[in-house]
Amino acid sequence: MTDTPAIKVSGLTKRFGKKTVVDGFDMEVPAGAIYGFLGPNGSGKTTTIRMMCGLLTPDGGEGQCLGHDIRREPARIKENVGYMTQKFSLYTDLTIRENLDFMARMYGLKNRRRVVDETLRDLGLFERGGQLAGSLSGGWKQRLALAACLQHKPRLLLLDEPTAGVDPKARRDFWDEVRRLSRAGVTVLVSTHYMDEAVQCDHITYIAYGKKLISAPATEIPARIGLKTWRVDGPDLTGLEAELTARPGVEQVARFGAVLHVSGTDEAALTATVAAQKARGTHHWQEKPAELEEAFIYLMTSAVDNFAVDIEGEAA
């Protein structure tokens, strides 16, 4: 693999009508990385991915993907990219084998029959090749879709919320496969809003309402945000949650099973509040390093606030 980044875009902008869906987006995905693309629903993840592989023409900005210009050479990009759409986009009225064969033909693969046979065997669907793709369960559809976009051995894999609606076991198998591909040198850009998937990524970019909020290696993100977190357990957490939310320095109270995670960026104020609570002796308080999950809930909350301001601004 070369050192040129697999994807490098800057100032990418896309408008649908009056609405700016992606706004001045910059990103650099190093070759061979597993790159996480996070953000709430409707934040512009899918639009950004589509622009990178030439399915949408950006209204502004520029970039290259696998060394090809995203505006001028979409055909060259498509030959070397595997794009797995959010919605199952193979033909439900074609059999599994027919779908794979169709994709193999579209990429002009040699020894098509052998390639398709191999794919079916790897999938463990060799005996079921004659079954209609539409009759597969969600997990199998996802595996088939991934296999279909890997047949032409792409150098870059774009996965748009690949594990939505798939059970945990299938999700784990899926990620094993993604890591195996990454070791083989394939660059993977994956969009998701599952935290357990986010932690699998080497690098994460968080996008909300078309704007990039943060981009950093996964392990550095909590520190970058500067979030302090305390873990609380004890009786009547619901009552405590309501009470804490109003206290100075507490920006976020999130419940994880039988414990609360209380976080804030203003360390002094938060420490004071916690000290007062500790003095009551009703609950057990423990400081803990902030994790990705708190960091993202924090980002999501503040992004929603930004959006609310935008709406008021428009109304005025």
Binding site: A75, K78, S89, L90, Y91, Y107, G108, A148
Partner: peptide, 14 residues
């Protein structure tokens, strides 16, 4: 309508 067009034009089809 079924979303298959997205996969179709993601291939090098002209």
């Amino acid at each position: 309508e079924r979303g298959t067009m997205e996969a179709l034009i993601a291939t090098p089809a002209r």
